[in-house]
Design a protein around this nucleic acid. Structure first.
Length: 431
DNA sequence: TCTGGGGTCCTAGGACCC
DNA sequence: TCTGGGGTCCTAGGACCC
């Protein structure tokens, strides 16, 4: 059996843990630059706010109805996520951290010793007590069915008929559950497949489980679709994957706080991403062999496509060095830069990741990329930024005009403090 | 005025290898 | 008339996930 633990309205719940006055009120969390709604409390959902809507479109009405908007505080959410996941790792034999707010648990063999519904209910209560985060738990013979059970557990706990836990462990329960879920809510069915399925007259998960394998292979993405069907029928096609260190690619990108037209400014943004990418690589002990730089213009308004320009560079040897990454990124940017356009976003993707260090692939022609002196310099850079705050020491390219905020910087009008990760911003309790 | 930031897996074709 | 059987790497794009 597999379990899926999913945090309810995760970002909104994180904000509420430290701001209990938000309890009972409609709360939304906004994306970077306070752009879109990316999380909603139950009350906000009840007001009809949709996931992903641009906030400016709904702001007036939302606030007038007593809603509170928070700028995203990923430092806080990341730390709360670690706390939830850490607890799950103490109680389950194997845990796959699937996303910031979700984890699959490997529960094989446990039904012999535990009543799974009771066990899952205990886990749910303990997570709430230890972290303040409400979760729901779905348990079923496959990951796809566990996701589906979780979804139903959420619905039922809202309707106050359930406990926030649903276990599907016999054939009748499985059939009943499949009949209650719309086909577009099945894990793995996206916008495109849902449209195809509706055209074919397939509306529920139960109907989907009944389509032929050949049809699924043809219309639902080949082997991916076939696996999904098997899992819906109760035959597992994938297990719990514990290790997550083997990242295959990495991306650092961000929309600017304002439109940029000068290459100098966009270069600053790209250099900032290169520095971030270098930090992430070093933290994971990885090095990258391929680097893609991209810049984007707005896809809203009257400007015709293309909106995105990118170029991929293959480095002579894999690197985790910020200075090297920065200089290649600049080269890439020069290649794709078109003057006269209004840019809104830039980013960097790294591919071909390998372990950094002794077993790293060397180049026959290039100089040694990672001299001990440079590695030491990067170590010092990370230590200083760790101690004095991100960006305390930077490459000159990644710094704007002295005394002025960086032109590419984010807007975050309503950010909560880093309650759990900065001494200066600890939660204050008055007695 | 104002529209997120990450990822994964799979397919298919071209160029090349023995 | 009939024209092998394995591979790799790279690029590009589609679909999906949170």
């Amino acid at each position: 059996m597999f379990g899926l633990v999913d945090c309810n309205n995760f970002y909104a719940s994180c904000e509420r843990v430290f701001r209990p006055e938000l309890e009972g009120r409609p709360v939304v969390v906004l994306s970077n630059n306070d752009g879109c709604v990316v999380a909603r409390s139950q009350e906000a959902k009840a007001l009809g706010l949709k996931m992903g809507v641009p906030y400016f479109q709904v702001k007036a009405e939302f606030e007038q109805r007593g809603g509170v908007a928070c700028s995203s505080n990923y430092e806080l959410y990341g730390d709360m996520s670690r706390r939830v996941m850490w607890y799950l790792q103490q109680v389950a034999p194997a845990v796959e951290i699937y996303s910031v707010d979700e984890a699959f648990l490997d529960l094989h063999g446990m039904q012999r010793h535990y009543n799974l519904a009771g066990w899952a209910g205990d886990v749910r209560g303990a997570v709430r007590q230890r972290t303040g985060i409400p979760v729901c738990v779905g348990v079923a013979p496959t990951k796809t069915l566990a996701k589906l059970a979780n979804r139903l557990a959420k619905v039922d706990s809202l309707a106050k008929v359930g406990s926030g836990v649903l276990v599907l462990d016999d054939e009748e329960q499985r059939r009943e559950a499949l009949a209650r879920v719309a086909v577009e809510d099945v894990w793995g069915v996206g916008y495109r497949s849902a449209a195809k399925l509706y055209t074919a007259g397939i509306r529920t998960a139960a109907q989907l489980a009944g389509v032929g394998d050949a049809w699924a292979r043809k219309n639902l993405g080949g082997v991916v679709g076939a696996r999904m069907l098997h899992e819906l029928r109760g035959f597992p096609c994938s297990g719990v994957t514990v290790e997550d260190e083997a990242r295959k690619s990495m991306c650092c990108s961000r929309s600017f706080g304002q439109v940029l037209t000068r290459m100098e400014d966009v270069t600053g943004a790209v250099a900032t991403h290169a520095a971030r990418a270098g930090e992430k690589l070093r933290a994971q002990g990885m090095a990258a062999r391929m680097l893609t730089v991209f810049i984007e213009t707005s896809r809203y308004g009257n400007v015709p496509p293309p909106y995105s320009f990118s170029t991929q560079l293959t480095l002579p040897t894999a690197t985790d060095d910020t200075l090297t990454l920065t200089s290649w990124a600049r080269r890439g940017l020069e290649r794709i830069w078109r003057p006269g356009l209004r840019y809104v976003k830039a980013g960097m993707m790294l591919d071909g990741l390998e372990r950094a260090g002794a077993d790293q692939q060397a180049s026959l022609f290039a100089e040694v990329a990672r001299t001990p002196a440079r590695a030491k310099l990067m170590g010092t850079l990370d230590a200083l930024n760790g101690k004095f705050g991100a960006g305390a020491v930077r490459v000159g390219t990644a710094v704007g005009t002295a005394g002025r905020p960086e032109p590419w910087g984010m807007r975050r009008g309503a950010k909560s403090p880093a309650f759990t990760t900065k001494w200066g911003e600890l939660w204050q309790v008055r007695c």
